[in-house]
Simulated scan of single mutants.
Amino acid sequence: MIKATNQILPFQALALQIKAEVVNQANDRQEARGMIEQKIDRIAQQIAASKAFIGSNCKLVLLPEYFLTSFPMAESLTTWAKKACLEMTDPIYDRLGEIAQRNNIFLAGNAYELDPNFPKLYFQNCFVFDPSGNMVLRYRRLNWMFAPTPHDVWDKYLDCYGLEGVFPVAKTAISNLAAVASDEILFPEVTRCLGMRGAEILLHPTSEIYGQARSPKEAAKVSRPVENMMYVISANTAGIVNTSIPEVSVDGGSKILDYRGLILAETGQGESMAAYAEIDITVLRQYRRQVGMKNLLARQRWDAYTESYSQFYGYPANSMDSKVVERKHFIETQRATIE
Rank of each mutant, 00 (worst) to 15 (best):
Asp41Met: 04
Met88Lys: 06
Ala44Gln: 10
Gly34Val: 05
Leu107Met: 03
Thr79Val: 04
Asn103Ile: 03
Trp144Gln: 15
Gln45Ala: 14
Ala100Pro: 06
Arg42Asp: 11
Phe118Cys: 04
Leu63Trp: 10
Tyr112Gln: 10
Glu98Thr: 04
Leu62Thr: 00
Asn125Trp: 02
Asn143Cys: 09
Gly34Asp: 06
Pro131Leu: 10
His151Met: 13
Pro72Asn: 03
Leu158Gln: 13
Ala48Lys: 14
Arg140Cys: 01
Val61Pro: 05
Leu142Lys: 10
Pro148Lys: 02
Leu68Lys: 06
Tyr122Ile: 12
Phe146Gly: 14
Arg42Ala: 13
His151Gln: 13
Trp144Glu: 15
Ala100Trp: 10
Ala49Cys: 07
Ser56Pro: 00
Trp80Asp: 02
Ser50Lys: 02
Leu68His: 08
Ala84His: 03
Leu60Glu: 11
Met88Ile: 05
Pro64Gln: 07
Pro72Ala: 00
Phe118Asn: 00
Ile43Trp: 08
Tyr122Gln: 09
Pro72Phe: 01
Val153Glu: 13
Gln45Arg: 15
Leu107Trp: 00
Gln30Lys: 13
Thr89Ala: 12
Ala26His: 01
Ile47Glu: 04
Asn110His: 15
Ser56Leu: 09
Asn134Phe: 04
Met73Arg: 14
Phe53Asn: 14
Tyr157Cys: 03
Pro150Phe: 01
Arg141Thr: 14
Asp90Ala: 00
Tyr66Gln: 14
Glu113Asp: 10
Phe146Arg: 14
Trp154Gly: 00
Lys156Thr: 01
Ser76Trp: 03
Ala48Pro: 00
Ile36Met: 15
Arg140Met: 05
Glu113Asn: 13
Asn143Met: 12
Pro148Ile: 03
Tyr122Trp: 12
Asp155Gly: 03
Gln30Cys: 10
Ile99Asp: 00
Lys120Ser: 13
Tyr112Ala: 09
Cys126Tyr: 07
Met135Gly: 06
Ile105Phe: 01
Thr78Ile: 07
Ser56Gln: 12
Tyr93His: 08
Ala48Arg: 13
Phe67Ala: 06
Leu96Asn: 05
Asn125Cys: 01
Thr149Arg: 00
Pro150Asn: 08
Glu75Pro: 06
Asp155Ser: 00
Phe106Gly: 03
Tyr157Lys: 03
Ala81Glu: 09
Asp130Arg: 04
Asn27Lys: 15
Tyr122His: 10
Gln46Cys: 01
Ala26Val: 01
Leu96Ile: 05
Lys83Gly: 04
Glu31Ile: 09
Leu77Ile: 15
Asp152Lys: 00
Met145Ser: 12
Leu63Asn: 10
Ala26Gly: 02
Phe67Tyr: 13
Asp94Val: 01
Gly97Glu: 06
Leu86Asp: 01
